[in-house]
Structures are given as structure tokens and as C-alpha cells.
Design a protein around this nucleic acid. Sequence first.
DNA 1: TGTACATCAGTGAACGCGCGTTCACTGATGTAC
DNA 2: TGTACATCAGTGAACGCGCGTTCACTGATGTAC
Lengths: 228, 228
Amino acid sequence: MRPKQSQQHPNLQEAIKNTARSQIAAKGAPSLSLRGIARELDITAPAIYNYFPNRNNLVTALIVDAYNSLSEAMVKSLAANSKRSYSDQIISILNAYRNWALSHSEEYNLIFGTPIPDYQAPMDIINPAAAGSLTVLIEVLGLAYQDRKLNVKEPSPQLLKMMQKWIENNDYSGHPGIIHLALASWIHIHGLVSLEIFGNLSACSENTDVTALFETEVQALLDRMGLV
Amino acid sequence: MRPKQSQQHPNLQEAIKNTARSQIAAKGAPSLSLRGIARELDITAPAIYNYFPNRNNLVTALIVDAYNSLSEAMVKSLAANSKRSYSDQIISILNAYRNWALSHSEEYNLIFGTPIPDYQAPMDIINPAAAGSLTVLIEVLGLAYQDRKLNVKEPSPQLLKMMQKWIENNDYSGHPGIIHLALASWIHIHGLVSLEIFGNLSACSENTDVTALFETEVQALLDRMGLV
DNA sequence: TGTACATCAGTGAACGCGCGTTCACTGATGTAC
DNA sequence: TGTACATCAGTGAACGCGCGTTCACTGATGTAC
């Protein structure tokens, strides 16, 4: 009830996270520094300790935000296309994934890049958020499967064993082959997006327009899944 | 001709790079520090300046080494399987890629992870080395194509435009669709390996045995290329 | 064989810097009477 | 309405640390005569 916040930063907690994100975008996640954030916000570094117990805790909050933001983008895109064909829905989700990565490259770095030195992500906090984007894929593929529009194969015993953790943690009761296809989709698209974001395609692509390649790969994926 | 080197480090230049690699493995690339290297080698930090003009130059040398080491591993694996079927050759190359990544995760980080803060890779030095692994793939696929064992599609105009840089830089005269397939292979495999290395599969795979998934994905890739 | 000299890899001190975190504090805000 | 008090977000100084890089130097090694 006390309006104690400074005039400059009505919501300092959010301002700290936003500044952290912009600092990561500018200098990379490992260079994230509390003093740097404080400098940009025109406060002193110890003030941050009123909102986050330490630097690592702030990083964890940023990572969770990033995962949630990514899966939210996918969910939104799916909702906007829920009346269209399953293949269109998949295309829209995967496009949402890539577009989110391109427009939030600093957060993409945070969750899919090199781990930050001296930072150990607390799995119990991270994993639930991290599961979001895969969950979206699994849901759509599940619907397509129910409609018999999806070519689902029986996973080999080794594959099944590998996916056991997911099945247990998420109380998944659908066809395991759907998890496999969702994973395969993620892998395929992640490969391209990750190379694109980290600049590893610069040896072969003059301009940054990798869109054509992306669309081709998505189509190859749809072919593989037998989606029409 | 002067055997001036200290007894402890007969080849200090190599020792510095090796120590740098182990430091990267332990603490991540951004934490690489000249003083840390010197400490481990029991020399003083300024001594390093006899071999590398500065920190960034050392990083560049490490990156070039990493690219060369990766493509060398792929070439070796190809040479060891040159008498077998094309699909076996592709499988062996892609396995070499993954195995190199798993056994050289610190160097993998260096070339495919988040860019290092305050470090700008000099493209003219990096790119030739970076092209190596893709070149190996293109060569094998080229041979398979000549043998009419490969299902090569005509790339769309947009795709062609995207690959123009590669074609020009490498004086490539083969079928452009082969570059596309090589790129697609790299993308597909990179997606899985990158997720595996950076620990992003931990949400779904209890054990670290992702091999089954890898083999399935390679097979899907071979299917797509029509390789028998 | 012996001596004066050149070389140059590695040293040690110093520079200026930024970092995370702690601590006692201040001073504006709101509350109780 | 006025006064004494409690709260607590943010301050400013300080801690001990590691960093890249510079610089004049040392001292073992090899060379020329």
C-alpha cells in the first residue's frame, strides 16, 4: 500500500530484468553484471539485493521468463491458427519458434547457448518452464494423430527408454511416437535456428534471409510426418 | 636453433593452447583468462605475449584449431569407410561429427555456442576453417549423385540465392541441390547435437544416451535424400 | 680455449579497471495516538 | 490537527578479488672473434 518506489522506476523489479535483458543483448549473457544494470538504471548496485538475493538468482528468473515467453509465443500463434489444417498449425508454431528466437536473440542465447560460467541452473525450477515449447508441439501432433492425419511409427525400445523421463514427469498417456515426432521437429528446427542465430551460416549465406531454407526444412519435416 | 625453452614446457605455444582448452572445458569460454592459463602453467601472464599478441588472438587460434579438428575427424572417418555404401559413409561422417562434439565439448562450445563477449571473430580467418565440415559432406554427396544414388531436387530460386555465397567462395560447379542437402544434413544433426551438448534434452532424457535418437534422425535424413 | 657480446623468453611490479557482496546508514513515507 | 514512531527502499563506502596489458629488467643461451 505504500507507494515507496522511486519516480524513475515504478516497478524496479521488472526494470532490473528488462535492463538485464538489454545488457545481455549488448554484451552477452556472461557479461551480465549487477553493477552494470544499476549504472543503467541510475541506482546503486546494492539496491538490486532488495529484489534478488544474488546474481545467480536473477539469471534464473531471466531464464524462466525466457522459456515462458517462448512457449507463450508458440501458444499464441497456435491459437490464431486453430481453425486451419494441422500442417498449417505446425508451420505456424515452428515459425513462431524461429521468429521468437530472431526477435529475442538475447533470451535465446540464455536458454540455448553456452551455459553461463559459475552458474548452475536449478533444474527443479528450470525444467517445468523448459518443457513448455515441447508440450505445445506434442499437443498439436496429438490432435492430428486422433484425426488420423499423422504418420506415427512405433518407437524402438531404446527410443522409448530415452523418452521415459518425459512420459513419467508429464503423466503422458498418448502414443509415445508422438513425443518422438515432437522431439524430431524440435531438433530439426532448432538446428537451423541455432546456426542462424549464432552466425554459423555466414559462410554460405550472404544475406541474412534464411527464410527460404527454413521453409524448405519445415516442409521436409511435414513430409516425414505424413502430414497433409 | 637455440633450445631456449623452459624444461617444463618444451613447446609453450602448444601448452598455452592446451591449457586454454582445458580452462574452457572447466569454466566456459567467456571465463578464459590469460592469468588463469599462466597460473596453471606456472609461468607469468606476460610470458604469453611472446606467443600471442593478445587474448583475442589466442581465442581466434583456438577457434581455427577447433574447426580444423572437427573437419579432420570427419575426413578420417570418411577415409576409413570409403569402400562402403554411400549411406554408410554419410552415417560414419555424421557419427564422427557427433562424437567429436561429445569428446571435445569445450571446442564445440567455442565454435557453435554463444559468441564470447568482447570478442569479434575475424571472418577472413575463421570462414575458411569453418567451411571444412560442410565441404566433406558436399564431397560425399557429390560422389553419390554422380553414381545416381542420390535424390537431388532443384532448389527454388530463393534457396539458390541464399547459397550463392558458398558457390562463389568455393568455386563450386556441381549441382546446387547437393549443397542444399549437405546444409540440410548439417542442420538436422546440429540440432540434436547442440541440444544434447548444452543439456537441453535433460527434460526428456533421463540418461545421457541419446544415441538411439541420433540414429533414428540420421535414418530419417537418409530417407529424405533417397540414399540406399 | 677463452672472452666479450647479442639475443630474447620469461619475470615482477605496476597501471587502471570492474566485479559481487556486506554493512551501517538515511530519509521519505505511512501509521498510531 | 499535530507529534512521535516504525518501516524499509535505496545509499555510499568498503572488502577482497581477478582481469588484460605495459614496461624495464634479468639471466641463461648461443655466437663471433
